[in-house]
Amino acid sequence: MGVHAKEQPPRRAEGLVYQCRLPLSSATLDLVSGLVRGHLKKIRWRKLPPGRIALIVLAVLRHGQRLSDMAGGHGISASTVRRWLLEVTGLLAARAPRLDRALKKIARKGGVVVLLDGTLVRTRRRTGDANRPNFSGKHKTHGLLFLALTDEKGNLVWISAAKPGRSSEITIARHNKITIHLREAGLGALADLGFVGLDDDPDDPVIVTGRKATRGHPLTAAQKEANRLVSRERAVNEHGFADLKNWRILTKVRMNARHATTLLRALLVLTNAQIQR
Protein backbone atom coordinates (compact mmCIF):
# COMPACT_ATOMS: atom_id res chain seq x y z
CA MET A 1 0.00 0.00 0.00
CA GLY A 2 1.36 3.36 -0.98
CA VAL A 3 1.79 6.21 1.47
CA HIS A 4 -0.09 9.37 0.57
CA ALA A 5 1.28 12.72 1.73
CA LYS A 6 -1.18 14.99 3.46
CA GLU A 7 -2.39 17.72 1.15
CA GLN A 8 -1.31 21.15 2.35
CA PRO A 9 -3.70 24.12 2.00
CA PRO A 10 -2.48 26.90 -0.30
CA ARG A 11 -0.54 29.66 1.42
CA ARG A 12 -1.99 33.15 1.34
CA ALA A 13 0.29 35.97 0.16
CA GLU A 14 -0.35 38.16 3.17
CA GLY A 15 2.12 40.85 3.97
CA LEU A 16 3.51 40.94 0.44
CA VAL A 17 3.57 44.19 -1.52
CA TYR A 18 3.50 44.26 -5.32
CA GLN A 19 5.15 46.99 -7.33
CA CYS A 20 4.31 48.60 -10.65
CA ARG A 21 5.92 51.26 -12.77
CA LEU A 22 4.35 54.72 -12.61
CA PRO A 23 4.75 56.26 -16.11
CA LEU A 24 5.00 59.86 -14.96
CA SER A 25 7.80 62.40 -15.11
CA SER A 26 9.72 63.63 -12.09
CA ALA A 27 8.33 67.11 -12.82
CA THR A 28 4.80 65.81 -12.20
CA LEU A 29 5.85 64.19 -8.92
CA ASP A 30 7.67 67.37 -7.86
CA LEU A 31 4.57 69.45 -8.63
CA VAL A 32 2.32 67.33 -6.43
CA SER A 33 4.95 66.98 -3.70
CA GLY A 34 5.33 70.75 -3.55
CA LEU A 35 1.59 71.26 -3.21
CA VAL A 36 1.38 68.66 -0.45
CA ARG A 37 4.39 70.14 1.35
CA GLY A 38 2.85 73.60 1.37
CA HIS A 39 -0.49 72.18 2.49
CA LEU A 40 1.05 70.23 5.39
CA LYS A 41 2.43 73.45 6.87
CA LYS A 42 -1.15 74.63 7.45
CA ILE A 43 -2.59 71.46 8.96
CA ARG A 44 -1.67 68.77 11.44
CA TRP A 45 1.24 66.36 11.05
CA ARG A 46 0.90 63.46 8.62
CA LYS A 47 2.21 59.94 9.04
CA LEU A 48 4.10 59.90 5.71
CA PRO A 49 6.35 62.53 4.09
CA PRO A 50 5.02 64.70 1.21
CA GLY A 51 6.84 62.76 -1.50
CA ARG A 52 5.31 59.46 -0.41
CA ILE A 53 1.83 60.99 -0.17
CA ALA A 54 2.22 62.41 -3.69
CA LEU A 55 3.34 59.02 -5.01
CA ILE A 56 0.34 57.23 -3.48
CA VAL A 57 -2.14 59.77 -4.85
CA LEU A 58 -0.60 59.71 -8.32
CA ALA A 59 -0.72 55.89 -8.37
CA VAL A 60 -4.44 56.00 -7.59
CA LEU A 61 -5.09 58.66 -10.24
CA ARG A 62 -2.96 57.10 -12.97
CA HIS A 63 -3.62 53.40 -12.48
CA GLY A 64 -6.96 53.51 -10.66
CA GLN A 65 -5.45 51.47 -7.82
CA ARG A 66 -7.82 50.36 -5.08
CA LEU A 67 -7.51 52.53 -2.00
CA SER A 68 -7.28 49.52 0.31
CA ASP A 69 -4.40 48.07 -1.75
CA MET A 70 -2.40 51.29 -1.57
CA ALA A 71 -3.21 51.67 2.13
CA GLY A 72 -2.12 48.14 3.03
CA GLY A 73 1.20 48.53 1.24
CA HIS A 74 2.09 51.64 3.25
CA GLY A 75 0.69 50.80 6.68
CA ILE A 76 -2.17 53.31 6.63
CA SER A 77 -5.95 53.10 6.37
CA ALA A 78 -8.04 53.33 3.21
CA SER A 79 -9.87 56.33 4.66
CA THR A 80 -6.53 58.13 4.98
CA VAL A 81 -5.74 57.51 1.31
CA ARG A 82 -9.23 58.72 0.37
CA ARG A 83 -8.72 61.92 2.37
CA TRP A 84 -5.34 62.54 0.74
CA LEU A 85 -6.87 61.95 -2.68
CA LEU A 86 -9.60 64.53 -2.09
CA GLU A 87 -7.16 67.06 -0.64
CA VAL A 88 -4.64 66.77 -3.47
CA THR A 89 -7.25 66.88 -6.25
CA GLY A 90 -8.69 70.00 -4.63
CA LEU A 91 -5.25 71.65 -4.54
CA LEU A 92 -4.60 70.77 -8.17
CA ALA A 93 -8.05 71.86 -9.37
CA ALA A 94 -7.48 75.28 -7.80
CA ARG A 95 -4.56 75.73 -10.24
CA ALA A 96 -6.69 75.00 -13.32
CA PRO A 97 -6.93 78.09 -15.57
CA ARG A 98 -10.14 80.07 -15.94
CA LEU A 99 -11.58 80.41 -19.43
CA ASP A 100 -10.79 84.09 -19.91
CA ARG A 101 -7.24 83.78 -18.59
CA ALA A 102 -6.52 80.68 -20.69
CA LEU A 103 -7.61 82.43 -23.89
CA LYS A 104 -5.67 85.61 -23.14
CA LYS A 105 -2.56 83.54 -22.46
CA ILE A 106 -2.83 81.93 -25.90
CA ALA A 107 -3.33 85.35 -27.51
CA ARG A 108 -0.22 86.73 -25.77
CA LYS A 109 1.80 83.84 -27.21
CA GLY A 110 0.67 84.74 -30.71
CA GLY A 111 -2.03 82.10 -31.12
CA VAL A 112 -4.99 82.86 -33.36
CA VAL A 113 -7.28 79.86 -32.98
CA VAL A 114 -8.34 77.23 -30.44
CA LEU A 115 -10.16 73.92 -30.89
CA LEU A 116 -13.53 73.40 -29.20
CA ASP A 117 -15.06 70.00 -28.57
CA GLY A 118 -16.98 67.98 -26.02
CA THR A 119 -16.56 64.47 -24.67
CA LEU A 120 -18.44 62.12 -22.40
CA VAL A 121 -16.88 60.53 -19.33
CA ARG A 122 -18.70 57.29 -18.67
CA THR A 123 -19.99 56.80 -15.14
CA ARG A 124 -21.22 53.86 -13.15
CA ARG A 125 -24.90 53.40 -13.75
CA ARG A 126 -27.40 53.69 -10.92
CA THR A 127 -31.07 52.81 -10.89
CA GLY A 128 -33.94 55.23 -10.33
CA ASP A 129 -35.49 58.25 -12.01
CA ALA A 130 -32.72 60.52 -10.76
CA ASN A 131 -30.28 58.72 -13.04
CA ARG A 132 -32.16 59.42 -16.28
CA PRO A 133 -30.61 62.85 -16.92
CA ASN A 134 -27.19 61.18 -17.06
CA PHE A 135 -28.07 59.00 -20.06
CA SER A 136 -26.61 60.28 -23.32
CA GLY A 137 -28.75 59.45 -26.33
CA LYS A 138 -25.82 60.28 -28.61
CA HIS A 139 -23.41 57.85 -26.97
CA LYS A 140 -26.05 55.38 -25.72
CA THR A 141 -24.52 55.22 -22.26
CA HIS A 142 -24.59 56.96 -18.88
CA GLY A 143 -22.02 59.62 -18.20
CA LEU A 144 -21.08 63.22 -17.57
CA LEU A 145 -20.46 65.66 -20.43
CA PHE A 146 -17.86 68.40 -20.46
CA LEU A 147 -16.34 70.77 -22.99
CA ALA A 148 -12.66 71.38 -23.50
CA LEU A 149 -10.49 73.82 -25.42
CA THR A 150 -7.13 72.83 -26.85
CA ASP A 151 -4.51 74.85 -28.65
CA GLU A 152 -3.44 74.20 -32.24
CA LYS A 153 -1.02 71.48 -31.08
CA GLY A 154 -3.60 69.57 -29.04
CA ASN A 155 -2.61 70.76 -25.55
CA LEU A 156 -5.57 71.13 -23.20
CA VAL A 157 -6.05 74.71 -22.01
CA TRP A 158 -9.49 74.70 -20.34
CA ILE A 159 -12.22 72.32 -19.14
CA SER A 160 -15.82 73.22 -18.35
CA ALA A 161 -17.81 72.02 -15.38
CA ALA A 162 -19.27 68.54 -15.85
CA LYS A 163 -22.94 68.36 -16.86
CA PRO A 164 -25.41 65.43 -17.05
CA GLY A 165 -24.95 63.22 -20.10
CA ARG A 166 -28.19 64.24 -21.80
CA SER A 167 -27.06 67.90 -21.96
CA SER A 168 -26.11 69.26 -25.36
CA GLU A 169 -22.67 70.61 -26.13
CA ILE A 170 -23.98 73.83 -27.63
CA THR A 171 -26.02 74.56 -24.48
CA ILE A 172 -22.95 74.13 -22.28
CA ALA A 173 -20.99 76.42 -24.63
CA ARG A 174 -23.66 79.11 -24.36
CA HIS A 175 -23.76 78.76 -20.58
CA ASN A 176 -20.00 79.38 -20.43
CA LYS A 177 -20.27 82.34 -22.87
CA ILE A 178 -17.47 80.96 -25.01
CA THR A 179 -18.13 83.25 -28.00
CA ILE A 180 -17.94 86.35 -25.78
CA HIS A 181 -14.63 85.25 -24.26
CA LEU A 182 -13.21 84.44 -27.70
CA ARG A 183 -14.04 87.93 -29.00
CA GLU A 184 -12.55 89.59 -25.93
CA ALA A 185 -9.32 87.63 -26.43
CA GLY A 186 -9.27 88.22 -30.20
CA LEU A 187 -9.26 84.50 -31.01
CA GLY A 188 -11.25 82.17 -33.22
CA ALA A 189 -12.30 78.56 -32.66
CA LEU A 190 -12.80 75.47 -34.80
CA ALA A 191 -15.63 73.14 -33.78
CA ASP A 192 -17.64 70.24 -35.18
CA LEU A 193 -21.15 70.38 -36.64
CA GLY A 194 -22.69 70.01 -33.18
CA PHE A 195 -21.88 73.68 -32.56
CA VAL A 196 -23.61 75.05 -35.67
CA GLY A 197 -25.61 78.11 -34.60
CA LEU A 198 -23.49 78.85 -31.54
CA ASP A 199 -22.02 82.03 -33.01
CA ASP A 200 -24.55 84.86 -32.74
CA ASP A 201 -22.80 87.07 -35.33
CA PRO A 202 -22.76 85.37 -38.75
CA ASP A 203 -21.25 88.49 -40.38
CA ASP A 204 -18.14 88.31 -38.17
CA PRO A 205 -17.96 84.72 -36.84
CA VAL A 206 -15.38 83.61 -34.30
CA ILE A 207 -16.43 79.93 -34.44
CA VAL A 208 -15.97 77.94 -37.65
CA THR A 209 -18.00 74.75 -37.79
CA GLY A 210 -18.37 73.72 -41.43
CA ARG A 211 -21.72 73.31 -43.16
CA LYS A 212 -24.63 70.91 -42.64
CA ALA A 213 -26.50 69.28 -45.49
CA THR A 214 -30.31 69.38 -45.49
CA ARG A 215 -32.85 67.27 -47.33
CA GLY A 216 -33.43 69.86 -50.02
CA HIS A 217 -29.96 71.39 -50.08
CA PRO A 218 -27.09 68.91 -50.38
CA LEU A 219 -23.57 70.16 -49.91
CA THR A 220 -21.61 71.31 -52.92
CA ALA A 221 -18.16 69.95 -53.69
CA ALA A 222 -16.56 73.14 -52.31
CA GLN A 223 -18.53 72.88 -49.07
CA LYS A 224 -17.56 69.23 -48.65
CA GLU A 225 -13.92 70.13 -49.13
CA ALA A 226 -14.26 72.96 -46.59
CA ASN A 227 -15.72 70.50 -44.07
CA ARG A 228 -12.80 68.14 -44.66
CA LEU A 229 -10.33 70.97 -44.04
CA VAL A 230 -12.03 71.89 -40.76
CA SER A 231 -12.08 68.24 -39.66
CA ARG A 232 -8.40 67.85 -40.49
CA GLU A 233 -7.44 70.90 -38.46
CA ARG A 234 -9.60 69.75 -35.54
CA ALA A 235 -8.11 66.26 -35.41
CA VAL A 236 -5.35 67.20 -32.97
CA ASN A 237 -7.84 67.95 -30.20
CA GLU A 238 -8.34 64.19 -29.85
CA HIS A 239 -4.78 63.99 -28.56
CA GLY A 240 -5.75 66.20 -25.63
CA PHE A 241 -8.75 64.03 -24.76
CA ALA A 242 -6.63 60.88 -25.07
CA ASP A 243 -4.00 62.33 -22.71
CA LEU A 244 -6.70 63.15 -20.19
CA LYS A 245 -8.38 59.75 -20.34
CA ASN A 246 -5.07 57.98 -19.76
CA TRP A 247 -5.74 58.67 -16.08
CA ARG A 248 -7.60 55.48 -15.20
CA ILE A 249 -9.33 57.02 -12.20
CA LEU A 250 -11.85 58.28 -14.79
CA THR A 251 -13.09 54.71 -15.24
CA LYS A 252 -14.42 54.85 -11.68
CA VAL A 253 -16.23 58.19 -11.80
CA ARG A 254 -19.69 58.25 -10.26
CA MET A 255 -22.61 60.61 -10.87
CA ASN A 256 -21.50 63.46 -8.61
CA ALA A 257 -20.92 66.26 -11.13
CA ARG A 258 -19.23 68.54 -8.61
CA HIS A 259 -16.67 65.92 -7.63
CA ALA A 260 -16.15 64.99 -11.28
CA THR A 261 -15.47 68.65 -12.17
CA THR A 262 -12.82 68.92 -9.45
CA LEU A 263 -11.24 65.66 -10.57
CA LEU A 264 -11.19 66.61 -14.27
CA ARG A 265 -9.63 70.00 -13.59
CA ALA A 266 -7.01 68.39 -11.37
CA LEU A 267 -6.19 65.94 -14.15
CA LEU A 268 -5.95 68.86 -16.59
CA VAL A 269 -3.19 70.39 -14.47
CA LEU A 270 -1.39 67.05 -14.20
CA THR A 271 -1.73 66.38 -17.94
CA ASN A 272 -0.23 69.77 -18.81
CA ALA A 273 2.64 69.15 -16.38
CA GLN A 274 3.25 65.77 -17.97
CA ILE A 275 2.79 66.58 -21.68
CA GLN A 276 3.51 69.73 -23.65
CA ARG A 277 3.61 69.46 -27.44
Rank of each mutant, 00 (worst) to 15 (best):
L120A: 03
E233V: 07
I43F: 15
V88N: 03
M1K: 15
K138Q: 02
R277P: 15
A148C: 07
M1F: 09
A189C: 02
P49R: 12
L31I: 14
L182A: 02
L58I: 05
H39Y: 15
I249M: 06
T214E: 04
P23S: 03
L61V: 04
H74E: 03
Q8C: 08
H39E: 07
R125K: 14
V112P: 04
R254W: 11
D200Y: 05
S231D: 00
H4T: 12
G154I: 07
N155L: 04
Q65F: 15
V88A: 01
R82K: 10
H259Y: 15
A266E: 07
S167H: 13
N256R: 12
P9Q: 09
R83I: 04
E233K: 09
E238I: 04
I172N: 03
R98G: 08
D243W: 15
A185F: 08
G240E: 07
A173I: 03
A242M: 05
L250P: 11
V253H: 11
K224R: 06
E14C: 05
R62L: 02
I172T: 10
D69T: 08
L31F: 10
Y18N: 08
L187P: 04
G188C: 13
L145I: 04
P97H: 02
S68T: 08
V81K: 02
R234F: 03
F241Q: 00
E14F: 09
N237T: 13
L40D: 06
V114G: 00
D243K: 15
V112W: 12
S168T: 13
T262K: 13
L48E: 08
M255A: 05
L268V: 11
C20V: 11
L31D: 03
M255H: 12
I178C: 01
R21N: 10
A266G: 14
S33C: 12
F146G: 09
L31Q: 06
R232H: 12
R62D: 00
R211I: 10
T209C: 05
A102V: 07
L40A: 02
H39D: 10
T127V: 09
D201Q: 11
V113T: 11
V57P: 05
Q223K: 01
V253S: 01
N272H: 13
K163R: 13
G2H: 15
D200G: 04
G15W: 12
L264N: 03
A191P: 10
M1D: 10
L264V: 11
P133G: 02
H4R: 15
L29Y: 05
D204I: 04
A27S: 11
T271G: 07
G128K: 08
V157H: 03
I106V: 09
P50I: 08
E14T: 11
D129A: 14
S33Y: 11
S160D: 05
P202V: 00
F195L: 00
K105Q: 09
R126G: 03
R234V: 02
L29R: 06
D117E: 08
R66I: 04
L55V: 05
L263R: 06
V196G: 01
N237S: 09
A235K: 07
M70F: 13
W45K: 14
V208D: 01
H259M: 12
R215I: 02
R124D: 09
L250Y: 15
L99P: 06
T150W: 03
L35K: 01
Q276P: 11
V36T: 06
T251Q: 14
L86S: 09
